[in-house]
Design a protein around this nucleic acid. Sequence first.
DNA 1: AAGTGGTCTAGACCACCGT
DNA 2: CGGTGGTCTAGACCACTTC
Lengths: 236, 236
Amino acid sequence: MSPKYKQVAEQIETDIMNHVYQHTNKLLTEDEYATKYGVSRNTVRKAIEILVNKGYVYQVQGSGVFVRDHYMSDYVNLEKLQGLTSDFSGRKVETRVLDFELTTANDEVAERMKCNVGTPVYYVKRLRLVDDHPFSVEDSYFRKDLVVYLDRNITEKSIYNYFRNDQKLAIGFADRVIYADFLNAADAELLGLNENDPALLVDNTVYLTNGQIFDVSRSTHHFRHVKMLKVSNIKS
Amino acid sequence: MSPKYKQVAEQIETDIMNHVYQHTNKLLTEDEYATKYGVSRNTVRKAIEILVNKGYVYQVQGSGVFVRDHYMSDYVNLEKLQGLTSDFSGRKVETRVLDFELTTANDEVAERMKCNVGTPVYYVKRLRLVDDHPFSVEDSYFRKDLVVYLDRNITEKSIYNYFRNDQKLAIGFADRVIYADFLNAADAELLGLNENDPALLVDNTVYLTNGQIFDVSRSTHHFRHVKMLKVSNIKS
DNA sequence: AAGTGGTCTAGACCACCGT
DNA sequence: CGGTGGTCTAGACCACTTC
């Protein structure tokens, strides 16, 4: 059972997507939502906070909550942790598994995972495509002792849905380091680009709720097809 | 007067920076902070939420709040909107104004600012350096009618502190689009790189609290010296 | 079972926007 | 001035971790 504030957030988000507030661009007041959904005002505020963080609405004290123009659909939204399918819903998202093996952590992986060299890890290399355009090449390592089981079939689909729903893994938080570098020959080939073209790289470190690292990955993105979006408030 | 939850957050942040919790990596409990600072538990929770979003701590239900390893000091933290000085506190941050003029919005700027072509804007081109290394080249436009006044001297320092503190501008939120591309010859020269090297670009759009765009900028970052960090929770 | 964070409520009062 | 979001409180109960 998902908490009330999430349910309310989803309801309001659906309304926004269905252009319910198109005339004025203004949402209902917090009190109105509280009455409508039979919850307290604080619960409504937590729900709206989620939508603010996603970049869907903005709040003006004394005035109301307003829908933002969301030209956002072509970007990877850095607020949403889920992955491509949710960023590009309604578009064709494809995954090709290029390599899958059970191996052990080398120096670099052990360093990134803060584990010992030789720790058993699953290694997965995948090519992601959106609307038939190469999108990114992704090298991932998962700690075998923490994820219990993984196979090639699972990696064809959403690995994270499997971890969350089937393995009941308690995924907590993630760091992403974003930078640019030269594209190497192998990735250039896969992305349909040239060696030494620019590449947009993301080094991802994923933690369980208890702070243990169970997954590190590096994604090399097609510099023409991929842009990332970060929305910020001043309050932070 | 800053709200209580911010003050509490700052206090706890100072404690973290001073290694007060180093032995166990564990913060006090929420109830303990509530007693210590004479506030309600919800206020403590809002304070801790800020620290979570900054990536300083993580929460484990039933267990406590724990300090994260913060190797984060070499990155531009995408959570913090303030700018280089706060990301690289303790390091030498320098700004060289390369160009400053009062002009009017051309097609591209008008499009990005969602204003009419010909709207008066300040244009500023700046080179940023950290520890004497070229860091980024930044092209900014500010709507003259919204920022009232700007001059070259102000742009040498923190433009945003001036807007916030002196002009009392109500800055609300910002979008940043992050991508990679080839470095052009002019920026390569300024950054001490070669033409067609990779570049890490950020297109920034800044809004007042009422939703009006008053600043757009494009930063071209040195791909060897700049990495950006985004920390995420699952809750979003 | 005890400790600790997560959700939720009802209500008070303040700060800001618009008329 | 009334309307609306922003801050804050005190307290209840739940969910999870730890012993």
